[in-house]
């Protein structure tokens, strides 16, 4: 068969899932809606972000949610020059592991700068909220270098 005679068609697979959140992730999402970040405390006093219902090492119930800072440090990062169609971001950005003040685990989010030269490991960044929040991880638009006029 000649390649030009080959049949081909778009195939879209789509599931409109809604996930129930439970008391811990629900509180985390509620915090996002209110522009507050919540982690959860382990027995040794360290704080997990995002929070989990159970200790990932001991499986103990975790119950004490605490508010953590809205600025932190980039511990590692990669540059995304061409975001894919379904990326929440449509311009070049960094994807970074960010260790927020008061948390002991870094979490992944975007750092919104114009080019990779503005990125370095150890840089301080602070959160940029969307104006309208609804209780979703995308209520965080991203992080920007600290002291760039973010309120």
């Amino acid at each position: 068969m000649n390649p030009e005679d080959r049949l081909s068609a778009p195939l879209v697979l789509e599931y409109p899932f809604t996930r129930t959140t439970g008391p811990v992730i629900g509180a985390f999402m509620t915090g996002l809606r209110e522009k507050v970040l919540l982690g959860i405390k382990r027995k040794d006093g360290s704080v997990l972000l995002p929070p989990t219902e159970y200790d990932p090492e001991t499986s103990e119930d975790l119950t004490e949610m605490v508010e953590i800072g809205q600025s932190g440090e980039v511990t590692t990062w990669t540059w995304v020059q061409e975001p894919r169609d379904q990326s929440p971001w449509n311009s070049p950005h960094a994807l970074a592991m960010i260790l927020l003040d008061g948390a002991d685990t870094p979490f992944i989010h975007a750092v919104l700068v114009d080019n990779a030269d503005l990125m370095r490991t150890g840089m301080r960044v602070s959160i940029k909220w969307k104006e309208e929040t609804e209780g979703h991880i995308q209520d965080i638009e991203g992080f920007i270098p600290e002291g760039n006029g973010n309120d």
């Binding site: 081909s8 068609a9 778009p10 195939l11 879209v12 697979l13 789509e14 599931y15 409109p16 899932f17 809604t18 996930r19 129930t20 959140t21 008391p23 811990v24 992730i25 629900g26 509180a27 999402m29 509620t30 915090g31 809606r33 209110e34 507050v36 919540l38 119950t63 004490e64 949610m65 605490v66 508010e67 169609d85 379904q86 209780g135 979703h136």
Partner: peptide, 25 residues
């Protein structure tokens, strides 16, 4: 679950949208 006072008396989020979409040829 102990929740900080900043969100304690608010309506809690109970669900989140997590749609999945894959485009193939």
């Amino acid at each position: 679950i102990q929740i900080p006072s900043s969100i304690r008396n608010l309506e809690q989020v109970q669900s989140v949208r997590t749609p999945i979409r894959m485009e193939y040829t």
